[in-house]
Simulated assay, not measured.
Amino acid sequence: MSPRLPALPAAMCIFALCLFATPAAAVQCGGDFNAFIANFSREAVGKGISQGVIAQGFAGITQDPKVMEFDRRQRGTFKKTFEEYAATRVGAARVNRAKQMMKKHAPLLSRVEQQFGVPKELVVAIWTMETDNGADMGKLPVIRTLATLAHDCRRTDLFQRELFAALQILQRQDLPQKEMIGAYAGEIGQTQFLPSSYIKYGVDFDGSGHVDLRRSVPDVLASTANLLKMNGWQRGQPFNMGTQNFEVMREWNRSEVYRRTLHYFAEQLKQ
C-alpha cells in the first residue's frame, strides 16, 4: 500500500501520510551519493536502527537511474476519464480472478470484514488491482529504490522517512533482506504498502509474530482493511463517490478516478 503518491501509478500509492510513522528527514539531499548514505546511516543509528541492520541494508548500494527515469515519467497517470481508466483495469478476466479469490479465502475474508468493518469486495478489489493478488509485486530492491529517491531533492523528506521505515522493517525482522523487493516507489507486498504504512498499519493476522505483506494472505488482507479502518472507515456505510468512506479511500489513493474504479470493481464482485 502504499500512501498513494499522486504522481505515481496505481499500485504505488498509499500515501503522503507517511509523515507520522517515521522521523522527519535530517540529511542534506543531493551531492555525492555515498556521502548521503553515510550521513543517513549516522542519523538512522541515532534514531535506533542497529549498525548491523544499516550494514546489511546498505551493503554495496548504488543509485538506480531507472528509478529516477520512471519517477520523472509518472505525471498525469490518472488523466484518463473514469470510463477509460476502468476499462483498462476491470476486465472480465480480472473480475473472474477476484471472484475465485473470494471463494478460496471466504472464511478469512469474513473474519477480516467482521473485525475491521471494510467490505470483503473492496479488500479483494484492492488486492487484485494492485498486484493481481500477489502475482506482480515488483522486482526492485526496496532500499536501493528508496535511497535513490531520498537522495533526489524533489521529495527527499518523504523518501527519507520511507527509507528509515524500510530499515525498521528489517530491524523488526518482518521481512529478510532478500524479500525487500518492490515497485518503483519502494512499495512492498501484495497490496503495495509504502514502508511507513507497513509499520503503521501492518497486522500480524496469522499469528506468526511478524507482519509479512509479501507471503501471508491473512496479513495482507487484514492490513489493507486496517489502513482504511484507522483512517475513519464507517462500517456498513456506502463508499461510492460523495460518501465519507469514499473520502477515507483517499488514504489509499488520492486519485478520484482510481477510487471510483475500486468502487466499480467491488460492485462487480457482488454480482
Rank of each mutant, 00 (worst) to 15 (best):
V220A: 07
S223E: 02
P218H: 09
Y198N: 03
R215L: 14
I188H: 03
P195E: 09
R215V: 15
I199C: 08
P218R: 13
D219H: 13
F205C: 11
Y184P: 02
D206S: 11
D219G: 13
P218T: 09
I199F: 04
A185I: 11
R215E: 15
E187K: 04
Y201V: 04
G186Y: 03
Q190F: 08
Y184I: 07
L221W: 07
I188G: 00
S208K: 14
F193R: 01
T191E: 05
G186E: 06
Q190M: 15
S208F: 13
G209W: 03
A222H: 04
Q190P: 02
A222M: 10
V203C: 08
S216I: 06
Q190I: 09
D206C: 13
F205G: 04
S223L: 10
V211I: 15
R214V: 15
L194T: 04
V211N: 01
R214K: 14
I188W: 00
L221M: 15
L194W: 02
D206H: 11
S216V: 11
H210P: 08
S196Q: 10
S197N: 15
R214Q: 14
G202I: 04
I188Q: 00
K200N: 13
L194A: 09
L213S: 00
V220K: 02
V220F: 05
V217F: 12
H210N: 14
Y198C: 06
P195W: 07
V203A: 08
S197I: 10
D212L: 07
I199K: 02
I188T: 00
P218N: 14
S197M: 14
G186K: 03
Y184L: 09
R214S: 12
P218Q: 11
Y201E: 05
L221N: 06
V217M: 15
G207T: 05
G209T: 08
E187H: 08
G202T: 05
V217W: 04
H210T: 14
L194D: 02
S208M: 12
G189Y: 02
F193L: 08
A222P: 05
V220M: 06
D204H: 09
R215F: 15
G209I: 06
R215G: 10
L213E: 00
L194K: 04
F205M: 11
V211H: 01
P218V: 11
V217L: 15
S223Y: 03
G209S: 10
D212N: 15
R214M: 12
Y198F: 14
A185R: 01
Q192E: 13
P195F: 07
F205H: 13
G189I: 00
Y198L: 10
F193Y: 07
L221K: 03
D212W: 02
Y184C: 06
S208I: 09
S216D: 08
Q192Y: 09
R214P: 03
V211L: 12
D212Q: 11
G207Q: 11
Y184E: 03
I199D: 01
R215P: 08
S197V: 13
T191Q: 05
G189H: 01
Q192N: 13
R214F: 07
S196C: 13
S208Q: 11
G207Y: 10
Y198S: 04
L194G: 02
V217P: 04
I199T: 06
A183I: 05
D219R: 07
Q192C: 09
S208G: 12
S196K: 04
V203F: 07
G207K: 07
